[in-house]
Design a protein around this nucleic acid. Sequence first.
DNA 1: TCTGGGGTCCTAGGACCC
DNA 2: TCTGGGGTCCTAGGACCC
Length: 440
Amino acid sequence: MLALVDVNNMYVSCERVFRPALLGRPVVVLSHNDGICIARSNEAKDLGVQMAQPWFQVRHLQRRAGLLALSANFELYGDMSNRMMTLAAAHAPRQEIYSIDECFLDFAGVRGDLSEQGRRLRAQVLQWTGLPTSVGFAATKTLAKLANHVAKTAERKPGIYARGLAQVCNFAELPAAALEAVLRATDVGAVWGIGRRTGARLHQGGVHSVFELMHADPVLLRRQFNVVLERTVRELRGEPCFGVDDAPAANQQIMCSRSFGEPVMDLARLTESVNAFASRVAQKLRSQRSVAGAVQVFLSTSPFRRQDRQHSPSVTLALRPPTADTRLLAAAATRALHGMFRPEHRYVKAGVVLVDLQPQAPGANEPDLFADDDTPQPVPRRDRTRLMIAVDALNQRFGRGAIDVASAARRSHRAPSVGAPGLRSPRCTTRLDEVIRVRA
DNA sequence: TCTGGGGTCCTAGGACCC
DNA sequence: TCTGGGGTCCTAGGACCC
């Protein structure tokens, strides 16, 4: 038996923990440049605010409906996520952290009342972190995701599902007729792995509810769609196709990109941004103890500005030998940028991607246990590595960007906020100088 | 005027080989 | 008119997730 534990409206819920005045009010959290909504409270959803909707399209709801907007505080969300994941992990033998706000728990071999266990988990996370969660139990990942969806929807929207399914929903203890009613009432688009495209095609083909999808022919679906949909349908029928992975492999690519908020035509400014991105991905690369065999840089004009000539080039440069050195990565990224930049275009986005990632060679970072004392070490390379270790340690201690390559932008890739919306909340769980002050 | 930032997996098609 | 057959590897692009 698997469970999926998911924080309701994660980012908004994190903000509400430290600002209870936000409870009950329509709230959204905005992306980096305050460009789009990346999280919505239930009240904001009820106002019709869509996921990833541009802020300028809903800004009028501030006055008309009291909508509140906050700038994202990812440091806070990451820390709250760690706390929630640690608590959840203690409730089952195995945990797969699937995203910042959800994890699968594998209860294989565990006896007893799992629904009760789920309610205890939920109560503990709520009391210890302040975060509200939903829990779905079922035999496969896809079904557990679906049970979780039902638990959430049953709490939020009356009338679709039975009230008793709210918060913790266990498909395994549902009578067959009740389960069928749930599956008939749920659109295929709610199924994990079925997005807008596939959902629309299924509807065209006459498959509307999850119940109908479960009774479609998997082999036929594979032929008409793809192998992913076949596996999804098998999972809906209770046949596990996706395993629980509690030891995720290192990333295969590492990216840093930003939208500028306003068009940029200045190569010097792009160079600063690209160097800042390179510095950031290099740091992420070292933290997973990898080296990159190639660096890719991309630029993009705005597809929303129809009147502009479009230009979205991308250049990949090989790194020989593979490296995790910020200066080498920044230099390569700069070369790539200069090779593709065209001064007549209005660029609104740029990014740096590290690909062809490989494990760091043994001994590059720490002494090789099995090496002879007189094994020759390539001195310049060791010096590079030690410099990078020092850079990472300084940034860890004094905050990101405390030390950087000179060519990197210092926040210059951040556009000014587009208006009223809130300041970022304090990083009160990770920064001593931002902790909440309580008056005596 | 203003439209995110990460990731994953799968597939089709081309290059190349014998 | 008609233009092998089978295999591998790589890449770009699509679809999806949160």
